[in-house]
Amino acid sequence: MQREKRAIPDDLFYDRNDFWIKVAEEAVIGLTDYGQGNIGDILYLELVPAGTVVRRGERCGSIESGKWVGSLLAPVSGMIVETNRDAEADPHMVNADPFGRGWLYRIEPADRNEIGLLMDSGAYQAWMEERICLEEKNSQGWID
């Protein structure tokens, strides 16, 4: 099977739920190219409002693709300072431009030590490939 090549920018961090994290004073969070491809065409996106304090691994939004509904889990703890309302109104942006216009939210990290728990691009690439192999091995013929 021909696999689509997935972009993994070098200057971002990643977590195992397929979120990218751009770390500066604040952190910007989005879904990776592989993540959006895995989820499929995104129909709806709902993020918790700015001002919400979330802990790492906690729900900070919901997403629907086709009939799949899942929770978005925060890769780091902190206070959400802005959500991408354009992407909420047009979630296809996340599929079309996951590292650009399809960003999800900005968060003020509460504990910078959590950044150390994230993966760099090389580690995420290995993690992604491992999962692609697992998917191919376990495939029951379900192909989007």
């Binding site: 910007v28 989005g30 802005e82 991408n84 354009d86 590292f99 650009g100 960003w103 900005r106």
Partner: peptide
């Protein structure tokens, strides 16, 4: 514009 944190057409924010 899409917001001050995004550069439309740029590689990523």
């Amino acid at each position: 514009p899409y917001g001050c944190y995004v550069n439309p057409g740029g590689p990523y924010v």
